[in-house]
């Protein structure tokens, strides 16, 4: 067990020391994706605004949710980030196959490259999200710092999520399609544009047992409700701890076998 953990930590340590590699590659990735377009990466902002705008227009103003556009904007921002991390994460090692079978870069470099890409993309969406929240007249309070803490926690959990998804996708290719379908379903069973109406019923159950709920809440509650989401933060911190523990164990045990299953 100790050997497995040590192997994983060595990979993570080497990967973090090579931050100039994954930071440079992630920037190139984002640049390449928008090469020859007039707006460049600003398309990421446009995409988010179009998505959020569609949700607000279609679902209208929900009387049960005051400040509905801001509520949707924050929820959608977090959901899109999580959804991208998971759906892209499962195919990460397949995409990086030529690097994995041709270099000795630590696995963490690929994981951090994708983390960095997702954070850069999210930064553009965040600009759109803030614009909607402020235009809707949401007061800026010191509680927003708790939202920032929530975002830090989500970013901290990201490499662990990517590691788990990438290992799952490499060893069990069907996971790619399974995850895509689950995430499509997740859009509706996660309280992005709805909320729990009462303590009972199916909606309350889904709200309660869906782990994504709490990751949305740690960012949304301080901004929209102006309070500290201690309960959600506790759940997210616990989930993040278990994600990292599992990721470290699987990374240490399987990192040298990944090249043989791609």
């Amino acid at each position: 067990m100790l050997k497995v953990v040590r192997s994983a930590l060595a990979d993570i340590g080497r990967g973090l020391r090579m931050r100039n590699v994954w930071m440079a590659l992630a920037r190139e990735d984002i640049g390449d994706q928008h090469k020859r377009t007039t707006l460049g990466p600003v398309w990421l902002l446009v995409n988010y605004l179009a998505y959020a705008g569609t949700f607000v227009v279609i679902f209208g103003h929900n009387p049960a949710i005051p400040n509905f556009p801001a509520f949707v904007a924050v929820g959608l921002f977090v959901w899109l980030y999580l959804s991208e991390v998971i759906t892209q994460g499962v195919s990460l090692f397949t995409r990086e196959q030529s690097f994995i079978s041709g270099t000795t870069l630590p696995v963490t470099v690929y994981v951090m490259r994708m983390t960095m890409q997702s954070v850069i993309r999210a930064a553009y969406a965040l600009a759109g999200c803030l614009a909607i929240v402020l235009i809707e007249g949401t007061p800026v309070t010191s509680f927003w710092l708790w939202s920032a803490l929530g975002l830090v926690l989500i970013v901290f959990a990201t490499p662990a999520v990517i590691t788990l998804c990438a290992i799952g996708g490499a060893f069990f290719p069907d996971v790619n399609f399974l995850v895509q379908n689950l995430m499509r379903l997740g859009l509706f069973v996660t309280p992005i544009f709805w909320t729990r109406l009462s303590e009972g019923g199916m909606r309350a159950l889904i709200y309660h047992w869906n782990p994504f709920t709490y990751f949305l809440e740690i960012v949304r509650i301080p901004v929209i409700d102006g309070r500290v989401p201690f309960h959600a933060l506790g759940i997210c911190a616990t989930i993040t701890f278990f994600l990292w523990a599992t990721a470290v164990l699987l990374l240490g045990r399987l990192r040298k076998q990944i090249v043989f299953v791609l």
Binding site: M18, N20, V21, A24, L25, E28, G31, D32, K35, S98, F99, G102, T103, L105
Partner: peptide, 23 residues
């Protein structure tokens, strides 16, 4: 092993030297 490994199609040769060097 693979001469094109790590080279990015859209980047210039000069930028590719930097990236390959970092790798």
């Amino acid at each position: 092993f693979n001469i094109n490994l790590g080279f990015r199609r859209e980047a210039t040769g000069r930028r590719n030297i930097v990236l390959r060097g970092l790798i």
